[in-house]
Design a protein around this nucleic acid. Structure first.
Ligand SMILES: [Mn+2]
Ligand SMILES: [Mn+2]
Ligand SMILES: [Mn+2]
Ligand SMILES: [Mn+2]
Lengths: 144, 144
DNA sequence: ACAAAATCTTAGCAAAGGTTAAACTTGTGT
DNA sequence: ACACAAGTTTAACCTTTGCTAAGATTTTGT
């Protein structure tokens, strides 16, 4: 086996795994958000949001289609499959918890926005639960 | 410009930037650690630690050399430049703070090890400071 | 000394995620 | 109708990070 259960090797493996899912998570989250806001999601809106070229978006969306997360007809708007919607919802929830957690710690809005965008993908279920409970406790404490 | 100061676009940009530095940070941290433990650092030790092939290590170390972080003669052990040592020290400190922070939150050793390996690269100076202060306060609280 | 083991390099391949340039489709306005 | 603008696709290329297979070097053991 490649290292024991709690070995550093396993940690690097998990981080690589997280990065492999990261783009898909950010894209489905963004697609759901744009559809909610604008009614439809065009590739150009994703390119603007992520700050990449529209060609990069086309290729990444093709990968999402291949993986069964998105559907789109040629030159048509991008939609999510049931699986894509589930991933989008889970990703958005996790992202919101990480953001709220950083805010509860006293981090500024701008930095919490930035840091949570990267951190969200590396937070395990155990850590997410701890974050959520911390936010809840802080919120309760602020009730006068 | 590509989005205002606190726009989501800027957050995605920062995350991509973090990922570009990530491998270098993990490698110099590992090289310093292995030298401290074994006296010298061979590529094979890095391959074992990261759980990748020795060929991947050779190529990544070549990039570190190109970037002025590491030096090594052909078939020789890997060493760090002054710049590499500085990056290693800064990375280790940041990593330790993130790990301790997760531990202070009540996360188990195994999960704190895993999650901190990915999270460390996305923690800004402001967030790192908040993490450090949280750990210090918790430590003080535990003194009976 | 020298065979075996360990380590390292090189060559060649793939996937992900970036780019620009050029062509194609679609919708809008007059 | 039809030109123009917006949006999309395709082609061709790059870097990083991974792999296997094959060969080169260095260290170790007898
Ligand atoms: Mn993200
Ligand atoms: Mn990451
Ligand atoms: Mn590290
Ligand atoms: Mn790391």
């Amino acid at each position: 086996m490649a290292g024991g259960d709690t070995s550093p090797t396993r940690a690097f493996d998990r981080t690589r795994h997280d990065h492999a899912s990261e783009t898909a998570e950010d894209y489905v989250e963004a697609i759901a958000e744009i559809i909610g806001r604008d009614g439809v999601c065009r590739g150009a809106a994703l390119a603007k949001l992520f700050g990449v070229s529209h060609v990069t978006v086309t290729k990444t969306v093709n990968r999402l289609k291949r993986e069964g997360l998105a559907v789109a007809e040629p030159y048509g708007p991008i939609e999510l499959t049931a699986q894509g919607k589930r991933l989008a919802t889970a990703s958005r929830r996790r992202h919101e918890i990480v953001f709220s957690f950083l805010k509860s710690l006293g981090i500024s809005d701008a930095v919490a926005l930035t840091d949570s965008e990267g951190i969200e993908h590396h937070v395990s279920a155990e850590t997410l639960k701890a974050f959520r409970r911390f936010v809840e406790r802080e919120d309760r404490g602020k009730n006068d």
